[in-house]
């Protein structure tokens, strides 16, 4: 466990050295810039749009970090041949993989946490720009803590994307890993269509295949409750728990797969 921790901390330090946290500056600049400019364009929907934009930006910045760092986690060590010196140390292969995953997860969580703080700060400022009468008709307060539910599921989604990227990076090139990870992420949003495929095709085989894919492929659409929280719609705690559990089990599956593949790889 200690070894995993060491690897994780190193991944985190490396991502800081690689200026990943610069994304936070871009995020803050985007939100503040839009908050400043948007007033005249939206017919009174500023706060709603900042909420939508903030949540979407947290998800997008996180997604880009998860994919583009995730795909290089293993590949970089192989490419730089540092994998040989690493594996000659008392680090077992599964510790290496899990440590890498934990490190990137830590980077993502820190990123999302800071972005969330900036997001709430911008919303708190915007809150002061409206009269009490305007605020009274909003579906939820500007700094509604209920939005943390959506951010929580975004974190689980990002951890899942990281696991997918890491899984692919154990056996393929960065370009292919990025393509496959993005591909799965996109397909994962069409899960409902796969489920209802039998309504649009006559072939029973195709329908069964689509149904099979529906169960097997990651259901990314399930993690998206941004619209619900912005509109202050109820989201049952049981839904949050079940979706989080789904994400964690899927992550475990991918990490086991990544460990198995990486353990069998021959680096001679």
């Amino acid at each position: 466990m200690r070894v995993i921790g060491h690897v994780a901390v190193n991944v985190f330090k490396e991502s800081v050295r690689d200026k990943v946290l610069y994304s936070l500056v871009a995020f803050a600049a985007l939100l503040i810039g839009v908050a400043y400019l948007i007033g005249q364009l939206t017919a009174g929907q500023d706060v709603k749009i900042i909420k939508d934009l903030g949540l979407a930006a947290i998800a997008t910045f996180g997604l880009l970090i998860a994919v583009f760092i995730g795909i290089g986690l293993v590949w970089k060590e192989v490419d730089r041949r540092s994998i040989y010196s690493l594996l000659s140390k008392p680090i077992r292969r599964h510790e290496f993989i899990l440590g890498k995953y934990a490190g990137l997860s830590l980077t993502l969580i820190v990123n999302v946490a800071i972005m969330t703080l900036a997001f709430y700060a911008v919303l708190a400022y915007m809150n002061t720009q409206f009269s009490e009468a305007s605020r009274s008709v909003w579906p939820a307060p500007a700094t509604d803590p209920g939005m943390l539910r959506a951010i929580g599921l975004i974190v689980v989604e990002l951890l899942l994307v990281t696991a997918i990227a890491l899984f692919f990076s154990t056996f393929s090139s960065p370009l292919l890993s990025a393509g496959l990870t993005f591909g799965l992420w996109v397909i994962g949003h069409f899960n409902a269509d796969l489920r209802n495929f039998e309504a649009v095709v006559e072939s029973k085989t195709a329908a069964y295949l689509a149904r099979g894919l529906y169960y097997v492929l990651p259901n990314f659409a399930a993690f998206d409750i941004k619209t619900q929280v912005v509109n202050a719609l109820p989201v049952a705690p049981s839904y949050l728990a079940a979706t989080t559990a789904y994400g964690l089990v899927y992550i475990s599956f991918l990490l086991v797969g990544a460990v198995v593949i990486f353990s069998r790889r021959d680096f001679k």
Binding site: L41, A43, L53
Partner: peptide, 15 residues
């Protein structure tokens, strides 16, 4: 998963 954000963009465009 960006339906709300795209809706916002179309709303701004409508205005």
């Amino acid at each position: 998963s960006y339906q709300s954000l795209v809706a916002d963009l179309y709303w701004i465009r409508a205005v």
